[in-house]
Design a protein around this nucleic acid. Structure first.
Length: 573
RNA sequence: CGGGGCGUAGCGCAGCCUGGUAGCGCACCUGCCUUGGGCGCAGGGGGUCGUUGGUUCAAAUCCGACCGCCCCGACCA
């Protein structure tokens, strides 16, 4: 296509509201414009790039036997009430009423709708397995949209749903998706990791997230460089570092001592001269309205996800200061498990077997020494500890690393929640009614674009992978007034088209500097510069990433770039 | 929902403190010039100063309410 005819509104300056790299560049390069908080218009370049991404996703989904549907974005309240999620989703769901005051909502996801279709039509085990998917807009009224296309309120998602007769069938569907996701993200040119994930409020047994490491990410993943263990921080396990000092021996009884003004673990450690690992950290949480005491080693952090999981709680929060005083008779900073009644006490596994530790005395400015779990109080032991960087891998002992990541895909086994709950039944070979087992698998389409921008940006702009760039190559005549240059540029352009490439001809009447800057900014992976060297019959072929430049003959330029593109697509660059 | 910041031309900003009816750079339009990294010269168009109430002879400027957007945190199938 000819640049002079296109709408590519590049900005010379950074828009003030954009902070993260991808947001800034997508705006500057004329890919997107904001309409409201977390709502964006995708202009020409973004649409081309997203279509490329969608094309890859579609191919790979079809390759595993997926069947594409297009489902309503507008749902009646009933289907969500039936699954019980009308209430669960709270303010994250966009809700509205139709003219008859009937409750409706915009779909955040499509388990309900898919299940409704399935229960109306699937009758026999002979019809299973099924893989149904859709690529379309989903709506979530995010409490805080942010980071450009990273967290938005309307976004494109590929979502698939599988129906199988048994767990073994689900395993197959799950593995197919796992493999398909690996192919999709590799083909899109991303460096990603698949990590074990928490399956969240959806329930279900097994779950993996596909993550791209990036400082712009919002999730933490834990990785072992030695054995390849990788998990979302919410779910990750590790061996904690050893306690920094031995516990005092003997069958000692708790003994109160005065700790004026010492509230934090660090302050108490300094005051007593004992390491933080000798202390018990007491956190008061409220789980579904009930107070619960959580105990950890002094230097450890509570994983709220693990904590909620251990209790099977839907909603947890730290107790308010007034509540703490009411229940413990002391303020946070002097709390401990000894003498606590009327609430569950959950202790992290790292406290099991420890003796004679320091804990709060439930009396302001006082602590207890010689507190021993199981003797001085009876806790329930659970894994509550959030993994920290440097912990030892439980598999191989390697040193775990923590990285910030962007979640681009999530697959999980749903189990029977929707089929059971919404009355989806088929007859099995014995003629008995059974509920099929389901899986659900999502990909954030815009996040693939954002991640690619983040991953390959430099000071000049973006440098998109060939497979998802809006054009393969931009042909830049340096001087429009030079008829020979324009002619050669057009010939190369036509040559590229003949080879099946998507070329962009920069025929704008602009100074060369402007053309180069814009080409770099919008991230087209290759540029053919037609300039002075044309006198010798040569043009330049520039790779956007790394700015590698080579000279080729005019007549060979199209073939040369085609070859590079071909191999880049093979290697996923 | 808690904390912070911002709203003046398409974009980036100044003006506000100390009220007197709006300015700069980029972009845009016209002409000339120039053509290997956001060129030069000349001329020009474009703004209900987020909305609304109040104070005042007079409000972009002072006071109040509201709305919107960004950032940090909480939250996040």
């Amino acid at each position: 296509m000819r640049w002079s005819q296109l709408f590519i509104p590049t900005l010379r300056e950074d828009p003030a509201e954009a902070e993260v790299v991808s947001h800034r560049l997508l705006l500057r390069a004329g890919y997107i414009r904001q309409l409201a908080a977390g709502v964006y218009s995708y202009l020409f370049l973004a649409q081309r790039s997203l279509n490329r991404i969608i094309g890859i996703v579609r191919q790979e989904m079809d390759a595993i036997g997926g069947q594409e549907f297009l489902l309503p974005a507008l749902h009646p309240a009933e289907v969500w009430q039936e699954s019980g999620r009308w209430d669960v989703m709270g303010n994250d769901m966009f809700r509205l009423k139709d003219r008859n005051a009937h409750d409706m909502c915009l779909g955040m996801t499509h388990e309900e709708v898919m299940t409704v279709i399935a229960r109306g039509e699937l009758r026999s085990y002979k019809q299973l397995p099924q893989i149904w998917y859709q690529i379309q807009n989903k709506f979530r009224d995010e409490p805080r949209p942010r980071s450009g296309l990273m967290r938005v309120r309307q976004f494109i998602m590929k979502d698939s749903y599988t129906f199988d007769m048994d767990a073994a069938g689900l395993d197959v569907a799950y593995q197919k998706h796992y493999q398909a996701y690996c192919r999709i993200f590799s083909r899109c040119g991303l460096k990603y990791v698949a990590v074990e994930a928490h399956s969240g409020a959806m329930g279900g047994s097994q779950s993996h997230e596909f993550m791209v490491k990036s400082p712009a990410g919002e999730d933490w993943v834990v990785e072992c460089p030695k054995c390849g263990y990788a998990a979302n921080l919410e779910k990750a396990v590790s061996h904690p570092s050893p306690a920094q000092g031995p516990d005092p021996d003997g069958d000692l009884t708790p003994e109160e001592f005065h700790t004026p003004g010492r509230k934090t673990i660090a302050e108490v450690a300094e005051f007593t001269g004992l390491p933080e690992t000798s202390q018990m950290k007491s956190l008061v949480m409220v789980a579904d309205g009930q107070p619960v005491l959580a105990l950890l080693r002094g230097d450890h952090q509570l994983s709220e996800t693990k904590f909620a999981g251990a209790l099977g709680a839907k909603e947890i929060r730290p107790a308010h200061p007034q509540e703490i005083v009411e229940w413990f008779g002391a303020e946070a900073g002097s709390l401990g498990p000894v003498g606590v009644t009327g609430m569950r006490i959950l202790a992290d596994l790292a406290l099991q077997g420890r003796r004679n530790m320091i804990a709060g005395a439930n009396k302001d400015d006082h602590h207890l020494r010689h507190v021993t779990p199981d003797e001085d109080f009876k806790p329930e032991y659970r894994d509550l500890r959030q993994v920290a960087s440097g912990d030892a891998c439980t598999g191989c002992g390697g040193e775990l690393a923590l990285d910030k990541t962007i979640e681009i895909g999530h697959i999980f086994k749903l189990g029977y929640r929707y089929s059971e709950g919404m009355g989806l039944r088929v007859l099995n070979a014995e003629g008995k009614e059974v509920a099929p087992i389901m899986g659900s698998y999502g990909i954030g389409i815009e996040r693939i674009l954002s991640s690619a921008v983040e991953l390959y940006a430099d000071s000049d702009g973006m440098a998109l992978p060939v497979a998802i760039a809006p054009f393969h190559v931009v042909i830049t005549p340096v001087n429009n007034a030079d008829a020979a240059q324009m002619k050669a540029a057009r010939e190369i352009y036509e040559g590229c088209r003949a080879l099946g490439l998507d070329p962009l001809l920069d025929d704008r009447d602009e100074r060369p500097g402007v053309k180069f800057k814009d080409a770099d900014l919008i991230g087209i992976p290759y540029r053919i510069t037609v300039g002075k060297k044309l006198a010798r019959g040569m043009v330049e072929l520039v790779e956007r990433r790394g700015k590698l430049t080579s000279e080729v003959e005019v007549g060979a330029a199209a073939a040369a770039v085609s070859q590079k593109i071909e191999s880049a697509l093979q290697d996923g660059h």
